[in-house]
Amino acid sequence: MTMQAELKTITTSIGVERDDEIHAREALLDRAMGTNRKRKSSEKLRRGRKPSEGLAFSARDHDGTLLGTVRLWDVDAGGVRALLLGPLAVDPGLKSGGIGSALMRHAIAEAARLGHRIILLVGDAPYYARFGFSADKTGMLAMPGPYERHRLLALELSEGALDGANGIIAPAGRRLKQRRLRAAA
């Protein structure tokens, strides 16, 4: 099945996130997840960081309107290099149209193509199981701050990649540059 067919012609493309989509992405995330989304434990791992190189994706319609988004972030998973997926969001009016699934498949394929070995996420196990995610190997890992342990899921892109991982997941990616604020004259 092609990406086009899976999306049921709602969108014409999934591609690398564009710099000019920042405000549209934030608005979409607020609509899809609420403004409290920034209080989640996974946000602590993303704060002040850039997504992993080449692993921030947008779904757009034929006019270029942002319909969905997903990003992956570099983390240290108890001594093992990994990616943290999230947030995955689709415009609430377009749920069940295949956009989220297409974004997931694209993100996983690109992570594998770039040589990454592990993807972690905090999410609904029944939804993410269809992409190969489970909690089977996350029992020795922990998120910073509160989270529901059964929602910490992993996908090994290389068999055994999580063997020996033990500890608190920590940010490990590229830092955002701090903007200098001018002092008022």
Rank of each mutant, 00 (worst) to 15 (best):
M3I: 02
Q4D: 09
E6F: 01
L7E: 04
K8P: 00
S13M: 03
G15W: 06
G15D: 14
V16G: 03
D20R: 00
D20F: 00
I22K: 15
I22H: 15
I22W: 13
A24H: 07
R25I: 13
R25S: 07
E26P: 05
L28E: 11
R31N: 11
R31W: 00
M33S: 10
G34C: 05
T35N: 04
T35R: 15
T35V: 14
K38S: 05
R39W: 00
K44S: 10
K44W: 03
K44Q: 15
K44T: 09
K50V: 02
P51C: 05
S52V: 13
S52W: 07
E53H: 06
E53A: 14
G54Q: 10
G54C: 10
S58D: 01
S58R: 05
A59W: 05
A59F: 03
R60A: 05
H62F: 12
D63F: 01
T65I: 04
L67W: 00
R71M: 14
L72T: 04
W73K: 03
G79W: 07
V80N: 09
R81T: 14
G86M: 05
P87W: 09
A89C: 15
A89F: 01
D91K: 06
K95R: 15
S96E: 11
G97K: 03
G97H: 10
S101P: 00
L103N: 08
H106W: 14
A107G: 07
I108S: 03
A109Q: 13
R113Q: 13
R117F: 02
I119R: 05
L120K: 08
L121D: 03
G123S: 12
P126E: 09
Y128H: 01
A129P: 05
A129N: 10
R130W: 01
F131Y: 14
G132M: 11
D136M: 06
T138K: 07
G139M: 04
G139W: 02
M140P: 01
L141S: 04
A142N: 07
M143E: 07
M143D: 05
P144S: 09
R149V: 12
R151G: 03
L152F: 12
A154N: 02
E156Q: 14
E159D: 13
G160M: 08
L162Q: 11
G167W: 02
I169N: 00
A172N: 15
K177P: 01
K177N: 04
R179T: 13
R180T: 06
R180F: 00
A183W: 04
